[in-house]
Design a protein around this nucleic acid. Structure first.
Length: 783
RNA sequence: GAGCUCAUAGCUCAGUUGGUUAGAGCGCUACAUUGACAUUGUAGAGGUCACUGGUUCGAGUCCAGUUGAGCUCACCA
């Protein structure tokens, strides 16, 4: 047995050495066969009856080095991967890199173009695309280095980039197929319009922001006087949108207004007659209990319109009151449509002032109130969202909802922590058709072709219309007419123009597990994958869309277990970010404390869904722990040099150990206590991986190694192993202690390895492998 | 407004289906050690388990309510 060098544990040199060793062979490939120590071919690997265990790593954004959330997430994936390998399973962790759509484009412009005083419009679309592509290639190498550095045992030969041509082709094929299946359509619908990026964005890309606003009370006259009432007062924070009102809504149970339902009001300024309808969505207690209905510029009003029109379907034609929309805001947030000329072209902000002033002159402004409101802003650009009607591409989600809910009930998908399933269920239940086109350059361009120039415009009645110019003539675009529009990957030929938009990031990343597996021919072998690890903030974004696409393509979720990690907090307990200055850079962590200490910090006392902090105090604790492991191992190895380990090396359980030496070696009580303790710990170790309780088991391992093994057992056997065995009983007592020391240390190394692989590998190679470094310890024997 | 999570030592947190005297790390105090390890050891101080009720032989744990914190969602236009 080799002896460990004196002194403190040198994590820097050791970790570099171990990294070199791991990457000196094909050890992280599932084709690696520990029995033959050779790489099987793909066929042998897929046909082998050994259980497969597969995990797709969430691809970090390729415009920067991985952040702390990425790096700590890897630790869970890697611990599970190593554990599964130790069980003897064929393990594949598939790494990837994400082009990051809107963020990729925005960050490239911000960090590379703006410093040169340029914008993307200084280049052609192709030039810009190639620049971003090249730039991300550079980062991909840096990211891969970081991933390897923190010990991620992924198969980097299978590293996949979302802008890889194979990936692009598969993403676009899905689009074409879903279009054929009637699940993707081009339609006019209300969207969240980001005026800054000039693009629609999905609900999950918006966030709420509290602002101080004003609530304006406005008189709407009635068409005829009734029971002494000649007007209604409505309250609104957005008076400028009144030009697009197509109705007035009250709660059906509101006695104040019951008699007015079915009659008409006159919309001031434009003098349009609009019906008074009802909806349970209207709050009686807010404002005056009367809502002005602007379906084109409020998603709530849009829903009320749809519900109302649905309720009218069964009525006789004469009794029907159908509500339509009037769109009066264009893509630049300026007024347009069937409105008086004086308002046309004003921004919504300018229009608000003018209209309030005009209402005041008309004597229709009753009062103004200060109010705190939650307005919708774009998560990425920060721009205020302008809800408006637009012709966009949508995915129809209704067909997936039931199945997406069922997989929770049937247990086909398990979410950790369990309570997060509630959030998933409520999001799926309320999922609306998903707008997937984005007005950007960096991403997958829609595989949609038009026979001529296509133009979206708002007509004189406030309707959004799309027209196409074929051979000089404008006609309305009919998406079902193949002479006007086709959905396919290749251009149909000369004269066909490709849609300018790109696909939403989640459209591609939602297919990620499917694409990773199919690209590598692994759908039959590894789908659904075993676990997906993501931050809980991605549950309603990425995770949800992956499940949607998984169900679309296979009727199964793409993973059996979803482990949601907490978010990483900084030294001050706040969410970690560079701008807050509570950020410990990974380079500094590795330099000062080592990767193993960082990894322990990620697991220790942590649970699914709970935020946790990476702090220097904790890192120091685990650096000290590693040093303790090092010194204890050194002590054990110094004292068992004359023990023939070959006879005990293959022993795998405490029971087996005791049977082997039954009648030949008499273990003392302290030996037996130690062995019992290890036996229990080993059970907990296994069950903690079944239950994803990493915090618990690392805490136990830490306490057990330090306090039970070092402080109690090691201290108690010192005199026994040091004695010069002159008489037979001393000699036997010494041998018993040596056996327990060896077995204990080996057990601890195995149980600690998934979490702190570097130091355990180094000690293992010397303790068990005689310093050979031929095969990683996770393969050298099964648990 | 709704939902979720949480409230345990100075700080960060464990405490699995209720069961002796409530635990760990860091920090603090005293002492020790040339030892495998000062990145150490031994001992110690420090808690009304947010509050109030209830169930129970027994509650940090279960139930109801109150207060406070955080997160998420949302139809207060």
């Amino acid at each position: 047995m080799k002896q460990l060098p004196q002194g403190q544990y040198n994590f820097k040199d050791t970790e570099n050495k171990i990294l070199k060793f791991w990457y000196s062979g094909p050890f992280f490939k599932p084709e690696f066969n520990p029995k033959t120590r050779k790489v099987d071919n793909f066929e042998e690997y897929t046909r082998d009856s050994t259980p497969k265990w597969t995990l797709v790593c969430p691809p970090p954004n390729a415009y920067d080095r991985p952040h702390m959330g990425n790096l700590s997430g890897y630790q869970y994936m890697d611990a599970m991967g190593r554990f599964q390998r130790m069980l003897g399973n064929r393990v594949l962790l598939i790494p990837g890199k994400d082009h990051a759509g809107i963020e990729g484009e925005v960050s490239y412009i911000k960090y590379f173009l703006e410093p040169q005083g340029k914008s993307k419009f200084d280049f052609t679309r192709e030039e810009f695309f190639n620049q971003v592509y090249q730039n991300q290639q550079h980062f991909i190498q840096l990211i891969r280095d970081d991933e390897q550095r923190v010990g991620l045992s992924a198969d980097f030969d299978r590293d996949l980039y979302t802008m890889d041509p194979k990936v692009i082709n598969e993403v676009l094929s899905t689009f074409v197929q879903m279009y054929k299946d009637g699940l993707i359509y081009r339609g006019v619908r209300i969207v969240n319009w980001d005026t800054k990026s000039q693009s629609a964005i999905s609900d999950s890309q918006c966030e709420r922001k509290k602002v101080q606003g004003k609530l304006y009370y406005i008189k709407y006259p009635l068409v005829s006087n009734s029971l002494g009432i000649d007007h209604l007062v409505i309250a609104t924070t957005r008076p400028e949108t009144m030009l697009g009102d197509t109705g007035v809504v009250v709660n059906p149970t509101d006695d104040r207004y019951k008699s007015l339902v079915g009659r008409k009001a006159i919309l001031p300024i434009v003098n349009r007659e609009i019906p008074i309808i009802t909806s349970g969505r209207v709050e009686k207690d807010f404002g005056t209990g009367v809502l002005k209905l602007t379906p084109a510029h409020s998603s709530e009003d849009y829903e009320i319109m749809l519900e109302w029109n649905k309720s009218q379907e069964d009525l006789l034609n004469a009794d029907k009151v159908i509500i339509d929309y009037v769109n009066i805001i264009d893509h630049n947030a300026r007024l347009c449509g069937p409105i008086p000329d004086k308002y046309k072209g004003l921004t919504t902000k300018e229009a608000r002032e003018v209209i309030v002033e005009d209402l005041r002159h008309l004597g229709l402004l009753v009062k103004e109130e200060e109010i705190t409101q939650n307005i919708l802003v774009s998560e990425r650009t920060g721009a205020v969202i302008e809800p408006l009607m637009a012709s966009q591409w949508f995915i129809s989600v209704s067909r997936f909802k039931q199945r997406m809910l069922d997989i929770i009930k049937t247990g086909e998908l398990r979410i950790y922590p369990k309570y997060a399933a509630n959030k998933y269920i409520s999001w799926v239940t309320n999922l609306r058709d998903w707008a997937i086109s984005r007005n950007l350059w960096w991403g997958y361009r829609l595989p949609v072709w038009y026979r001529g120039v296509v133009e979206e415009f708002i007509d004189d009645s406030g309707k959004v219309r799309v027209r196409i110019n074929i051979a000089g003539d404008w006609e309305d675009l009919d998406p079902n007419n193949p002479d006007q529009m086709r959905v396919q990957i290749e251009s149909p030929g000369d004269g066909w123009i490709q849609d300018e938009n790109i696909l939403d990031t989640w459209f591609s990343s939602g297919q990620w597990p499917l694409i990773c597996l199919s690209t590598h021919g692994l759908m039959d072998v590894a789908y659904p994958t075993d676990v997906l690890v993501s931050g809980y903030d991605l549950l309603i974004k990425w995770d949800l869309f992956m499940i949607l696409f998984g169900i679309y393509k296979t009727n199964k979720p793409p993973f059996k277990n979803l482990y949601l990690t907490g978010l990483v907090k900084g030294t001050d307990g706040q969410k970690m970010s560079k701008s807050r200055g509570n950020f410990v850079p990974i380079d500094k962590i590795i330099e000062n404390y080592g990767v193993d200490a960082f990894r322990m910090n990620c697991y220790y006392q942590n649970r699914a869904g709970r935020d946790y902090a990476i702090t220097e105090a904790t890192l120091k604790t685990f650096r000290n722990f590693n040093n303790k492991i090092w010194n204890a191992s050194k002590f054990v190895m110094m004292n068992i040099g004359d023990l023939d380990i070959s006879s005990i090396n293959s022993i795998k359980s405490v029971t087996e150990l005791r049977n082997r030496f039954e009648g030949t070696i008499e273990f003392s009580q302290e030996d037996l206590d130690m062995l019992d303790h290890l036996d229990k710990l080993d059970h907990e170790f296994h069950s903690s991986f079944d239950n994803f309780r990493f915090g618990k088991i690392t805490e136990k391992l830490y306490a057990s190694f330090w306090h039970t093994f070092c402080d109690v057992y090691l201290e108690s056997v010192k005199s026994r192993v040091k004695v010069n065995a002159e008489n037979a009983s001393d000699h036997e007592s010494r041998k018993a202690a040596q056996i327990v020391l060896f077995y204990s240390l080996k057990s601890y190394l195995k149980m600690l390895h998934p979490f702190i692989p570097f130091i355990t590998e180094e000690i293992w190679q010397n303790l068990v492998e005689d310093g050979k470094y031929e095969i990683p310890m996770m393969y050298s024997e099964h648990l």
